[in-house]
Simulated assay, not measured.
Amino acid sequence: MSVTRGSIPVDHPARHRSPNRLNPLSLRAYLATTTRILRQLVGDHRSVAMILVAPSLIIALMYFMFVDVPTRPGAPSPFDNACLIMLGVFPLIVMFLITSITMQRERVSGTLERILTTPLRRLDLLAAYGTAFSVAAAAQASLACLVSFWLLGLDTAGSPVWVFVIAIINAVLGVGLGLLCSAFARTEFQAVQFMPLVIAPQLLLCGIIVPRAHLPEWLQWISNVLPASYALEALQEVGAHAELTSTAVRDIAIVVGFAVLALGLAAATLRRRTP
């Protein structure tokens, strides 16, 4: 480097460091955070049971509830309808609860503040949580689908692979919503209180209890902006059609969009300091 009259040439390397270049320190911090969260989940046996075992046990209970219920010729069995709903609902509910409580615990313990002093950016931190919980969601969906299709005889016109994919997408949506809601909670109890506020209306208006077409018009408008409505509709399309329909593709894209939006809003509202 040459200095002439106190000036630095334009081609000085410090002036052209690209801010978009992948930072190895940030990548290592992201991987370390993801690994730490997975280790915490594995070490928490209650969380593992809630994520993996509880959905399969409840689906098995539903099977024995419907085993003697008569089915009209040519119509899907009541168990098939109920099981499809549960495969879509469980990942959303469970991952919302686990994520919101875990994130709030990180904030209260001061772990979140220490992580944010590292080169890890907020979006990278949320991506680490999303990755870790998506792995847990994939394990949950795999076990639930295995029990449903191969042990309990769940029958769908479409491929079980699409049921599995939609279940994972619903779980990622639950992760995004959980991370977003945890930003507005002060305690773990407050994080749980977001459950009836965020999840319950979606379950009531997505068509599980009353078909969406039979709802009052103003409730249909609300239902149309809730992601669970499209998640359930996508599962119903897979259950009724052998090929993936355009409606199912649209619904899956909408749910993915909601999940990405929730993760982005969660990163934007992530506070650096614990109040």
Rank of each mutant, 00 (worst) to 15 (best):
R28T: 14
R36G: 04
Y63Q: 03
L22P: 02
G74Y: 07
A29C: 15
L57Y: 03
L22G: 07
G43N: 15
F66T: 11
R21M: 05
M62N: 08
I58K: 00
R28K: 14
P78D: 09
A75D: 13
V69H: 03
M65K: 04
N23T: 05
I85D: 10
V42G: 01
V67W: 01
L61N: 02
A32T: 14
P55Y: 07
A49D: 02
A29G: 13
A75G: 01
V53I: 15
L22A: 09
I37G: 01
G74M: 09
H45G: 14
L57S: 05
F79T: 12
N81S: 14
R36I: 02
T34H: 09
S56Y: 03
I85R: 03
R36L: 08
A82V: 04
F66I: 15
F66L: 14
F79G: 11
S26W: 03
F64K: 00
P73M: 03
T33R: 11
P78G: 11
A82D: 01
L31S: 12
N23F: 04
P24Q: 11
V42Q: 05
R39G: 07
S56T: 12
Y63I: 03
A60N: 04
L27G: 00
L27D: 03
P76V: 07
R72K: 12
A60G: 08
D44H: 10
R36F: 05
M65A: 13
T35Q: 08
L84P: 01
T34E: 07
D68F: 09
G74R: 11
L25E: 12
L52A: 04
L22H: 06
L22K: 07
F64Q: 07
I37A: 05
V42I: 11
A60F: 07
R39C: 06
S47L: 12
S47T: 13
R28N: 14
M65Y: 02
L25W: 06
R21P: 00
L84W: 00
S47E: 07
M65I: 14
D44N: 15
A82Y: 00
A29P: 06
R28E: 13
M86L: 15
R39A: 03
F79C: 12
S77K: 10
